[in-house]
């Protein structure tokens, strides 16, 4: 196979069906590279949420099941209980994870379920036409834009051996490293792992390439990248 593509790709489903310029494809490429580097392609299952993420149901040559909107963490919790020796990974959007599926996400964190949850945050409901989502920044007093700090919130609730982080499609090299950490943590510590990935949505943002990455830079200014660890002594 062409070296440009991860070995874990399902070749016959390429070209992929995401919109031109969509962040998902670039994110999935780094996920694929991380999976290749860890050699876990045949030792994992991927749960795919509804929304744009649903298009990833046959993206990889990896056992994959599409689930329902917001329900992927719950499905992968069940899967992991049945197959504890395999990696269980949930791939979701910000609407699925932070709105309709937030309850299940938080309880998976509280129970320290040994699954890896990946949330692609492009600040809107893209599949349905760009409606506002929990991560759509809101103007606050003084002109500040308030966002939804998913990883920070989760870090507050997470067990000590959980791993929480945030990456960006704008920094693929770092993203690949973060993916590897989020997957390795599940294997090594048998604990919860969470990675949010800041992404772009040129179609619904109505931005060209330059403006898309400008907006992404704004996001990177208000959201920290890397491992997110909030130590709360009283926790």
């Amino acid at each position: 196979m062409d070296k440009l593509f991860p070995k874990s790709y399902k070749q016959e489903t390429k070209p992929h069906l995401f919109c031109p310029g969509c962040g998902h494809a670039a994110i999935l490429k780094q996920l694929g590279e991380a999976i290749d580097e860890l050699g876990v392609q045949k030792n994992m299952a991927l749960g795919i949420d509804i929304g744009c993420s649903l298009l990833a149901w046959n993206f990889f040559d990896i056992d994959t099941a599409q689930t329902h909107h917001g329900r992927t963490a719950s499905v992968m919790v069940g899967y992991k209980m049945a197959r504890p020796e395999r990696l269980a990974v949930a791939y979701m959007g910000d609407g699925g994870a932070y709105a309709i599926g937030l309850q299940s996400l938080l309880h998976a964190v509280l129970r320290n379920e040994p699954i890896t949850v990946i949330v692609v945050n492009n600040e809107n409901y893209s599949m349905t036409g760009g409606q506002k989502s929990p991560t759509t920044r809101k103007s606050a007093e003084g002109g500040d834009l308030r966002g939804f700090k998913g990883p920070e919130m989760i870090s507050h609730l997470a067990a000590k051996n959980a791993w929480v982080g945030r990456g960006s499609v704008g920094n693929p090299r770092q993203l690949r490293v973060l993916f590897k950490k989020a997957l390795a943590n599940q294997m090594e510590n048998k604990s919860f792992s969470f990675l949010e990935v800041l992404s772009i949505c040129p179609v619904n943002w109505k931005t060209d390439a330059a403006a898309s990455f400008e907006r992404l830079k704004e996001m990177e200014k208000i959201y920290s990248l890397g491992e997110i660890k909030i130590d709360d002594e009283k926790n």
Partner: peptide, 16 residues
């Protein structure tokens, strides 16, 4: 945490 998660937990286990 609720019956939604219970139902989908079943499906995850069944997939496994």
């Amino acid at each position: 945490e609720d019956e939604i998660a219970a139902g989908f937990g079943v499906l995850g286990a069944v997939l496994g």
